[in-house]
């Protein structure tokens, strides 16, 4: 499956239980109350669906949604 910004946001929304509209690019995981287990779940699905493996140490509670999307997009095969 091809990676896209929309697809990544869809996975974050699904795994965190948040409305996709709430995922503002500048919002941090902490602000959105997305905990470490939700992040791990999101990374698991991203890897499963798109074959993109992300090092969880590159993310922290202050990472924004935009940081996350950029990181996945950078690692995705072009």
């Amino acid at each position: 499956m091809t990676v896209s910004k929309e697809a990544i946001l869809g996975v974050i929304a699904e795994e965190s239980g948040l409305d996709p509209a709430a995922l503002r690019p500048d919002a941090t995981f902490e602000q959105l109350d997305i905990g470490s287990l939700d992040v791990a779940s999101t990374l698991f699905i991203i890897e499963d669906k798109f074959g993109v493996e992300v090092d969880p140490d590159k993310l922290d509670p202050h990472s924004t949604i935009a940081d996350f999307v950029d990181l996945v997009m950078r690692l995705a095969p072009s």
């Binding site: 287990l37 791990a40 779940s41 698991f44 890897e47 499963d48």
Partner: peptide, 9 residues
């Protein structure tokens, strides 16, 4: 090798 991180909780 990996399973869903929510498997245990």
């Amino acid at each position: 090798a990996k399973v869903h991180p929510q498997t245990i909780p």
